[in-house]
Nucleic acid binder design. Structure first.
Lengths: 228, 228
DNA sequence: TGTACATCAGTGAACGCGCGTTCACTGATGTAC
DNA sequence: TGTACATCAGTGAACGCGCGTTCACTGATGTAC
């Protein structure tokens, strides 16, 4: 039977990743220790090198894995709603992002927090990093093509018009300036709110940050889609 | 003369802080090394302990210092405008925050990025941490008391009303739900946008992130203050 | 089905490194009379 | 103004620690005939 060795290998690999993730959570990515993982697994420290070629590569795997799981969470949330239900999709995406962040603090921090200086993300991270982005971009495209007009106005200057011309091409969405501005702003607000909550900058402000977050998302959704 | 020893001491202290900041920038807070600072200063590593009682305390000083400088930057930006000029103040605050973040990446990351796990911020950091917050809170209070009505609506449910009742007390601003929601949302968007830009999540989206940021701030200001 | 060989997970010792912190000390700078 | 003493910055050796990575090795698991 070919599968047995492979199965054990997969188990050990998964165990290493699990322990690594726990370490990142409790001590930070910069203090990820291969030796400690080996100790927890009752292996010689050198054995880790049968599974990962270096500490940096293990970190990379962690990052790719995190991006993939965020992408999956958001794609799933999006797919559960009708494609026409723009507000429903927006809300589902935003709430999914927050709850994923809350239950996966370490991964969220790894991916969206302070970059680990000196760590250069290799190219393998690019595609997974785009998964969650693409969901939002598609939503914006759908909103624009179904004629939503956001309830805000973009300032009209030549510089700003030029910038949004660039953005249109960069993300491949042929939407008017106001839609781009409203959408990107809403997306920034969602991330900002999650960051503030997760990293402890609003502990004294809210009784239940989730309630405020829901109101925020609701308001932003109506704004981007142009409903009141 | 009493001042000489004190002056030398102040110089050395400042040099240590400067080198520490540079290290945080290039290698991250988790890898801050007292020994390396000593080496750069041509001192014995033990000499650092004449100035700081531990590595953690040096980190704390760095954090307090960063908060203080953010607070100062934002207070200054705010104070340059007439108190009546609500949009002007909002814009100045937001732009000041972004440009401070861009020129002080290490400090920004230290304060607003992933918390260093295991590091418990002592009480001395609380007051400096509130400086920048208070500027925004005061602006919201002024907006509300001068009768601005934001151009968004807050969802009306009992839960949300209750939450904002809590927020009103927590930040000491007697503003209607819609003002709180618009204000907090705008503030989150500003932080979100800065985080995305600084931590490299939108490198491929904008030609000049500053232009988008200015448009964003302008739009948010009009929204919170209720002007179109 | 049995045997010979190749693959591969895991070992344990070693290399060379850097770290935070303590301690007893020296010698220069400041203070009090 | 000069002297005796206290303060304090800085030294250098040491303690005990953990780290990533390499290397030659063993022994079990799988593969080909």
């Amino acid at each position: 039977m070919t599968g047995k060795r492979a199965a054990v290998r997969a188990d050990t690999t998964a165990a290493i990743i699990r322990l690594a993730r726990r370490q990142v959570e409790t001590r930070g990515a910069a203090n990820l220790s291969l030796r400690e993982i080996a100790r927890d697994l009752d292996m010689a420290s050198s054995a880790i090198y049968r599974y990962f070629e270096s500490r940096d590569q293990l970190l990379t795997v962690l990052i790719i894995d995190a991006y993939d799981r965020i992408g999956e969470a958001i794609e799933t949330a999006d797919a559960k709603r009708d494609r026409d239900d723009l507000i429903g999709r927006w809300t589902a995406i935003a709430l999914a992002l927050r709850s994923w962040a809350l239950t996966n603090r370490a991964d969220y921090g790894l991916v969206f927090g302070t970059p680990v200086p000196g760590y250069e993300a290799p190219d393998d991270t690019i595609a997974p990093a785009l998964r969650y982005t693409n969901v939002v971009v598609r939503l914006l495209a759908d909103a624009s093509s179904s004629g939503c007009t956001p309830s805000i106005e973009s300032p009209r200057t030549r510089k700003i018009a030029g910038e949004y011309r660039y953005v249109r091409r960069a993300i491949g969405v042929d939407a008017p300036d106001a839609t781009l501005l409203a959408g990107l702003s809403a997306w920034a607000a969602v991330f900002g709110a999650i960051n503030q909550e997760l990293f402890g900058h609003v502990d004294t402000v809210y009784a239940d940050p989730g309630i405020h977050f829901a109101a925020l998302v609701d308001m932003l959704g109506r704004q981007v889609m142009g409903l009141t």
